[in-house]
Design a protein around this nucleic acid. Structure first.
Lengths: 107, 107
DNA sequence: AAAATATACCTTGACAGACGAGGTATGTAT
DNA sequence: ATACATACCTCGTCTGTCAAGGTATATTTT
C-alpha cells in the first residue's frame, strides 16, 4: 500500500459511515467499494475493518443484521443509525478544519 | 484541544520538519510557533514533541546542538538534514495524495 | 522574601487503532 | 482435484500519543 496508515488513521470510521450513508452494506462489499473509489490506491485491512465495525456498533453508530442469502457465504449487513449520521456530519466538519490546519502547518 | 489527535497523527514529524526548514529551532519555540500559526487551535503535547525529536534524530532527519545562552534555561537546537528535507518533500506529496483520497471517500 | 509564572528541558507507563498472521466456510472456474 | 473468489472472524504485536510526573533558571507579582 502506498499511503501510510497513520495518515488515514482517524478517518477509518468516517469512511465506513460514508459508505453506509449511501446504502446498507457488508464488510467485503465496503472494502471493494473503497478500492474502486480510490482506483486501487487504498484498501482497508480486514482486521482494521472488522475492529472498526465492533467499535461503531458498540457505540451505537451502526446496527447489524444477517442477510438472507440462500446461496454463497453469509453476509453481515450494517446499517447506520441516526447517532451514526450525526457522528459522520461532525467528522466531516472536523476534516475540513483539520485540512486547513495541516495546510497551514506543513507548507 | 478541539481537533482529535488521530487526525493529526502521522503529520507530527512533517510539522516539525516544516518548522526547521525555515530556521534552526528548539522544542519550546517550535511549539509556540505552531500555536501562533494555528491561532491556538492546535498545540503539540510536550511528550509527543520530544518523542518525535528522538525518532527524527535517530533516523538522521535532524541533528541537535546546545545553544550558547548565557542566561535563562538551556536550549537544545535542532537542524534539518538533507535526508530530512527529502522526507519533508515526500510527506508533502503524500499529504496531497491523502487529501484527495479522503475527500473521495468521505463525501 | 516568598510565591507564582514563564521559559526550557526530560522520562515513564498506559492506551488505542492498525494490521500481520492465522483461522473457518461456501461457491465457481480451471 | 486445485485454485480462486466471496465472506466472515480473532489474537497478539507494534507504534504514536499523551497524562503525569520530574528538573532547572529567570522574572514578575504579592
Amino acid at each position: 500500500m502506498s499511503i501510510a496508515s497513520d495518515l488515514i488513521r482517524g478517518h477509518t470510521e468516517t469512511i465506513i459511515l460514508a459508505q453506509l450513508l449511501k446504502k446498507d452494506s457488508y464488510g467485503y462489499e465496503i472494502n471493494k467499494s473503497i478500492q474502486v473509489a480510490t482506483k486501487g490506491e487504498y484498501e482497508l485491512k480486514e482486521a482494521t475493518l472488522y475492529s472498526a465495525f465492533r467499535r461503531l456498533e458498540a457505540a451505537g453508530m451502526i446496527e447489524s443484521y444477517w442477510g438472507d442469502e440462500t446461496t454463497g457465504a453469509r453476509r453481515r449487513y450494517y446499517r447506520i443509525t441516526s447517532v451514526g449520521r450525526s457522528l459522520y456530519e461532525r467528522n466531516r466538519g472536523d476534516w475540513e478544519v483539520t485540512k486547513r490546519l495541516i495546510d497551514s502547518l506543513i507548507v
